[in-house]
Design a protein around this nucleic acid. Sequence first.
DNA 1: CTTGCGATTCTA
DNA 2: AGAATCGCAAGG
Length: 199
Amino acid sequence: MKKLTADFYKRDTLIVAKELIGKYIVHRVKEKNLVCRITETEAYTGVEDKACHAYQNRRTNRTEALYMEGGHAYVFLIYGMYDCMNVVTEEKNTPCAVLLRGCQPISPLDALAQQRYQKTYQQLTNYQKKNFGNGPGKLAKALAITREQNKASLLSEEFFLFEKEEDLPPVIGTSPRINIDYAEEYKEKHWRFFEVGSV
DNA sequence: CTTGCGATTCTA
DNA sequence: AGAATCGCAAGG
């Protein structure tokens, strides 16, 4: 296994979003490693992207994390209830990120999330679930990621991504991004990436 | 200070 | 189809 380094994140957001499919994310909580394999992402490409929180260089308390250099976490609250986990990309002051929308559980997930849902590992995330609320909220919940992790480094020992070099390359599909009806011409762009068969 | 609503999930 | 639920960001 090889940990992803700053060089991986500090590249074009669309490339990072695509290459994150099939990578693994680890969050170490209370001596336990929560691990998932990423199966679905969306790219938010910065000041030009009408769907991006930093569109038109909107720099506020919330979007500050997007302006950090690639390799940090951007976690925000959506609909007053759910946390969304993003990987910040590109250089400092280039406010781009990749939203992690779906994953495949690999190792035991957050005990609290299990209690809450009273379900199996598979059902804790949106992996291979259709016709149901699928999306980034579940992924963050399963990995115990909240706004406390906002601005955290993804190069640390407790919170990082890695790849298995022996893994076969995933088969990747694309589509428009989900729930961004307000984004006008940008809502058509195929900036959602997923492993074929995972959604 | 007010207000409309969102990169969603879950129940019915 | 509708509710839950609250911080953000824009506007007055």
